[in-house]
């Protein structure tokens, strides 16, 4: 834990050196994603609902996913830019230290400008909560867990996609396909998509397990409390999968080098 703070502090100092860029960037990250929400808001103001979901309900889905994504971009930018570590050979120097590589990669860069994303998600989420009525007040206990689950799933998806760089060298485009696009998809109700596509988002890259399914219950669309357990299934499978893939990636790296 002490190490975590040391690494965090180092990253923070580095970031704070370019003050102007830093503050404009926080604002930009706030607005950049907020534009996406504004557009969906405009659509829903005009058309009332999408597949039976009203704007404030979509706002909740959006906020949960984007919060997890924002926190991941904040503390896990090292995974997002993993190909740079591999291509520059800097990954070697991480292997020379007596600390788990995963931790070092994760904290290689704390990207504080992504605070803008996190705040943006919270603003949208708070607005959504204010407008919503929940079947019971357990939502307020459940929400922190759900947000945590969203962070974890986002991190685990990014670990899997980062590990691809062990095989392919470059993986920026795989990340755009496997993470950016799927997380955007998971901010809208599953029923608007083709079945195959929503199955992928439930079982393969299970973002729906933290957004769509739990909210089915809390928006009163279903009274089956089983849906509240879906994040757990998402996390368990992704934890197993990501650690397996990461480990075999490391193994491959140490047998072939760069």
């Amino acid at each position: 834990m002490e190490l975590f703070f040391t690494l965090f502090k180092a990253s923070f100092k580095r970031e704070a050196q370019y003050k102007f860029d830093f503050f404009v960037n926080i604002l930009g990250n706030f607005l950049g994603l907020f534009a996406d929400f504004l557009i969906i808001a405009l659509i829903l103001i005009r058309f009332q609902n999408i597949a039976g979901w009203q704007l404030h309900q979509v706002a909740l889905m959006y906020a949960i996913i984007e919060f997890g994504f924002g926190v991941y971009r904040l503390i896990g930018e090292g995974f997002n830019r993993f190909e740079e570590l591999i291509l520059s050979g800097k990954f070697d120097t991480l292997l020379l230290r007596p600390v788990p590589v995963l931790v070092q990669v994760m904290l290689h860069k704390i990207d504080l400008k992504r605070l803008g994303m996190v705040v943006q998600a919270m603003v949208v989420g708070l607005w959504g909560i204010q407008r919503s009525t929940f079947p019971n007040s357990s939502f307020y206990c459940y929400l922190p867990l759900l947000l945590l689950a969203s962070v974890i799933i986002n991190l685990e998806v990014s670990i899997i996609l980062a590990a691809m760089a062990f095989w392919t060298g470059k993986n920026k485009d795989i990340i755009i396909l496997g993470h950016y696009s799927t997380r955007t998809a998971a901010t809208y109700p599953a029923t608007i998509y083709h079945k195959l596509f929503s199955h992928i988002l439930t079982l393969v890259i299970p973002f729906f397990t933290v957004s769509y399914y739990p909210l089915l219950y809390y928006t009163g669309k279903s009274d089956n409390p089983f849906y509240l357990l879906t994040p757990l299934f998402g996390i368990i499978t992704m934890t197993l999968l990501s650690s397996l893939i990461w480990r075999s990636g490391i193994k491959r790296y140490s047998s072939t080098g760069t």
Binding site: Y18, F20, D21, V24, N25, L27, G28, G32, A35, L42
Partner: peptide, 29 residues
């Protein structure tokens, strides 16, 4: 001029998203 590397990148995407009409036909504004 100002040695700013990615200062306005996200602002650029913000304005692009909102004002270019790439994801929404302008008639819905």
């Amino acid at each position: 001029k100002f040695i700013s590397i990615n200062g306005v990148q996200m602002l650029y995407y913000f304005t692009g998203t909102l004002f270019s009409g790439a994801w929404i036909h302008l008639k819905y504004y």
